[in-house]
Simulated scan of single mutants.
Amino acid sequence: MATPGSVTPEAPFDPSQPPVIEGFSPTVYKDAETFKEKFLRKTRENPMVPLGCLGTVAALAYGLFCFHRGQSQRSQLMMRTRIVAQGFTVAAILMGLAASAMKPRH
């Protein structure tokens, strides 16, 4: 007789295979996406996020360049611009999440 806390497995556990969970599919895609394919798909779904990231990096790089050259006023302006670009990026991410949450599931 088994003790109340013991569990007898029905099949041996194979750590090289994902567990089978009823009603759960680990991916909705037939084939695994490569990094490039996923990046392009996500960019098409929400193109404002990469634009915000590029704006953030550009403002940061130019601000650091101005700081290195001793142009403190322009450097401060670029750091403030970077903050605005970061805010734009976060807003774009949130808007994308809201849009995908309201999209009907197939």
Rank of each mutant, 00 (worst) to 15 (best):
residue 26 P to K: 13
residue 53 C to T: 14
residue 3 T to R: 09
residue 16 S to D: 03
residue 67 F to S: 06
residue 101 A to N: 14
residue 20 V to P: 08
residue 56 T to P: 04
residue 12 P to R: 10
residue 80 R to G: 15
residue 56 T to K: 01
residue 68 H to K: 14
residue 88 F to G: 13
residue 39 F to G: 04
residue 102 M to I: 05
residue 92 A to R: 05
residue 19 P to A: 15
residue 24 F to P: 08
residue 32 A to Q: 12
residue 14 D to Q: 00
residue 81 T to R: 04
residue 5 G to A: 09
residue 65 F to M: 13
residue 13 F to R: 02
residue 86 Q to I: 11
residue 62 Y to M: 07
residue 23 G to S: 13
residue 13 F to I: 10
residue 105 R to D: 08
residue 66 C to M: 13
residue 23 G to P: 15
residue 90 V to D: 04
residue 3 T to C: 06
residue 104 P to T: 06
residue 70 G to F: 11
residue 39 F to L: 05
residue 86 Q to L: 02
residue 89 T to C: 07
residue 4 P to Y: 01
residue 3 T to L: 06
residue 7 V to E: 14
residue 55 G to K: 06
residue 17 Q to V: 02
residue 2 A to M: 12
residue 30 K to V: 10
residue 4 P to F: 00
residue 8 T to P: 06
residue 73 Q to W: 00
residue 15 P to K: 12
residue 56 T to I: 00
residue 6 S to E: 08
residue 85 A to S: 09
residue 34 T to E: 10
residue 55 G to I: 00
residue 103 K to C: 00
residue 57 V to Q: 02
residue 24 F to C: 10
residue 55 G to L: 09
residue 101 A to L: 11
residue 55 G to R: 05
residue 74 R to G: 00
residue 25 S to A: 14
residue 14 D to Y: 07
residue 91 A to H: 07
residue 33 E to M: 10
residue 71 Q to Y: 14
residue 25 S to K: 08
residue 81 T to H: 05
residue 71 Q to W: 15
residue 60 L to D: 08
residue 39 F to K: 04
residue 47 P to L: 00
residue 96 G to A: 09
residue 83 I to D: 14
residue 12 P to V: 15
residue 21 I to W: 05
residue 86 Q to G: 02
residue 71 Q to E: 15
residue 9 P to L: 02
residue 28 V to L: 15
residue 100 S to K: 11
residue 86 Q to M: 13
residue 72 S to C: 07
residue 66 C to K: 14
residue 98 A to S: 10
residue 104 P to M: 09
residue 51 L to E: 06
residue 50 P to H: 03
residue 60 L to T: 08
